[in-house]
Nucleic acid binder design. Structure first.
Ligand SMILES: [Mn+2]
Ligand SMILES: [Mn+2]
Ligand SMILES: [Zn+2]
Ligand SMILES: [Zn+2]
Lengths: 150, 150
DNA sequence: ACTAAAATAGCAACATAGTTGCAAAAATCA
DNA sequence: TGATTTTTGCAACTATGTTGCTATTTTAGT
């Protein structure tokens, strides 16, 4: 067993226990996928990455559990596939508080949380009571801009 | 034939001809649905409203055609069902230009274009090239706020 | 108004996304 | 370790969306 993998395994196990979640193979694997890369993942992307190790339903339920516990959050999209990304510390069991925007690259199709960019206050006409604001920016991401320039 | 219906029929026919679109029963009916109410419509909502008069595929293709021609635009969502709403004059064949935000009521589940609310400029970190900004506000709409107060 | 060409609609089949009930398996706890 | 609780896998189902092909409708020219 390589020491790096062992370290990550310990980390995800700790994370799960901290949320009082049973530590199972699927939860460890899926949580690790999120930790291993900076972007957001859709159910389909996860299915591709883990192969047929886990049932589709298990993946759906795992994602829902993570959302419920404030481990990950959902990101709306224009292509009918919900993306999920890791939450920061402010989120917890039963509550999410996000003030960042999301960026979707039209070239590589990755979705990123831009934690540095705070959602501005949107002033609505009389009568509308806002609860949550989602900002979705589409364009070309850092990586794709750089590789186009070379 | 009631004069009101005849007048609307003439209107949608004119609209379609103005876009050099063949005037068909499905296109007239679906365009009329959008003109008859202020909100956005999903494929499913349209299917319910028109019953089984048109094939599902026809509805999908009609919506796509309208989007292509700049008659309607899509609205991203968190529930995996694309909504469509009428465009204003600025959009046309092959191009959309929208600067308004969208409001989704968590009570009545209607989606509205808030044309009065202009999307603010979002400043991104270096390297990201924005192309389009979508703002989705969730909360309670005008109607639902009023009826709750009574 | 009639006809040929072009566009559109309907059908079937498929693909992807997501849900639910239930029994088997695994994780937790004592 | 063994009982209890939780999670998983399977099957079946719904919703959403696409594609290829043929029949029908629309359009445009006469
Ligand atoms: Mn995010
Ligand atoms: Mn709109
Ligand atoms: Zn990119
Ligand atoms: Zn409402």
């Amino acid at each position: 067993m390589p020491p790096v993998a062992a370290a990550t395994e310990k980390k995800v196990t700790e994370l799960l226990k901290r949320q009082s979640l049973s530590v199972t193979a699927s939860r460890k694997r899926i949580l690790q996928l999120f930790l291993d890369q900076p972007g957001a993942l859709s159910h389909g992307a996860i299915e591709k990455k883990v192969g047929s190790v886990f049932d589709r339903v298990t993946i759906y339920r795992t994602l829902q559990t993570f959302v419920d516990r404030g481990l990950i959050h959902t990101i709306p999209s224009a292509d009918n596939a919900i993306r999920y990304a890791l939450c920061k510390d402010e989120c917890g069991d039963g509550h999410h508080r996000h003030e960042h925007i999301h960026f979707v690259c039209q070239q590589c199709h990755h979705t990123y949380c831009l934690d540095e960019v705070v959602t501005p206050v949107i002033r609505l006409p009389k009568g509308y009571s806002p609860q949550q604001v989602e900002i979705l920016v589409q364009g070309k991401c850092k990586q794709c801009t750089v590789s186009a320039r070379r």
